[in-house]
Design a protein around this nucleic acid. Structure first.
Lengths: 218, 218
DNA sequence: CAGACAAAATGCGTGCACGCAAGTTTGCGC
DNA sequence: GCGCAAACTTGCGTGCACGCATTTTGTCTG
């Protein structure tokens, strides 16, 4: 289940993908997100515009993917790396926080950019959906095949929680009427760091994980 | 907090929206989903193509919205209608099942259509996101303001679960390798009715709701 | 009722996503 | 090495989403 030897074909493909990522982000930072056309990105990466669209389904996706890279796979690996003794809920929370905390200098600059445009923000939030599949796998491994459904649902819930945490974190200035049709009541956390937000968002799901875990190892 | 008297303006707007919905679905059924251009839908509804895009952000959204209509608001109302005695998790599960079960003749025809195109299927699944906000409101009302965060997360989890249930239900034929990188283990529910799927998807979240509910009413 | 004001409809222009049908490269067995 | 099949790239054409400026249409007030 390891990488056999990645042939030339695959390596070239990854190189192109990386070139597009890098070009997209760099141009967006240099000239502003709205002043960059797909044509420019493709040219900077040395491919045709049509090829660009074989790699990314939207302009925003390319820019954002330079930041999110392949966090998806790393989260699953981070969960699997935790000793089997710790509670599943804790293992996941720690892994998630860990993977969303490596804010390199380079990335921080990009995040500021993302905050400025709603389309970019949305694209970034959509990347959380990518962690569902890997998470489903590791969760299912813990709670056994009888909980295959549950694994899927729990993974999706985690993704949703992470999304919510990021959503609030990327909010430039605090605003009200965010929840659903009525003010949030007035006493929500004003801002908070990203790790705190992530932990807070994941906390409500803990009981569900505990229950799922206990059902298999009584 | 009731509807004062909805002016002519608002009524016309809803009429236009309804006309677009109806036209989109009808034309899609008649000529096939791919043979219908936005221009056709707009013309059938008696508005300009540009106006069409003021109501719907994509062609698929218009078609799908004829089915999903405003299930969002109805789900929240259905939850609120349950007596305060029943467990929150049960109230939500019942309300969700109830709202996704009224398969009118007309709707069933549309669902078959949706199954045939991936783009339509995705658009339909995306409608589940719309129930988050109303659900957040009703959940928050039950568990109090201290659980404002939790309400948001739980609502999103419910939406995710519903999405998963619908996803599986719309699958034309059973296929493997659906979960995350490895076979589902072999013993998942082959098909099942929609209500069953919904209940099964929501079940893993029950402990989380119980915990949230107890924290406020010990 | 007239005139001001807000909201929605419309026309136009631009960039984009993507299907399709070549053309080109890579991998592989002989 | 040779040639073939699959994978990837590219050009082209079409329909679409959406910003902007303008016109039309409710709505409110004196």
């Amino acid at each position: 289940m390891t990488t056999p030897p990645p042939g030339l074909r695959e390596r070239k493909k990854q190189a192109t993908r990386e070139a597009l990522r890098e070009a997209a982000l760099r141009l967006a930072v240099e000239h502003g997100p709205d002043q960059v056309r797909v044509e420019d990105i493709a040219e900077a990466a040395g491919v045709s515009p049509r090829t660009y669209n074989n790699y990314f389904a939207s302009r925003e996706q390319a820019i954002v993917s330079a930041v999110s890279a392949d966090r998806e796979a790393r989260i699953a690996a981070a969960v699997a790396a935790r000793p089997a003794g710790v509670r599943l809920a804790d293992a996941i929370a720690e892994a998630v926080v860990e993977q969303y905390t490596n804010t390199g200098e380079h990335e921080h600059e990009a995040l500021l950019l993302i905050t400025t445009r709603t389309a970019l923000r949305d694209a970034f939030l959509d990347t959380t959906a990518g962690i569902e599949a890997p998470l489903t796998a590791v969760i299912a491994e813990r709670i056994g095949d009888v909980g295959a459904h549950a694994a899927r649902v729990l993974a999706a819930s985690v993704a949703a929680a992470v999304r919510i945490a990021l959503e609030g974190w990327l909010q430039p200035t605090g605003n009200a009427e965010a929840a659903g049709g009525f003010g949030t009541g007035g006493l929500v956390v004003p801002s908070g760091s990203l790790p705190d937000r992530l932990r807070a968002a994941l906390a409500p799901l803990t009981p569900a994980f505990d229950a799922a875990e206990q059902r298999t190892q009584p």
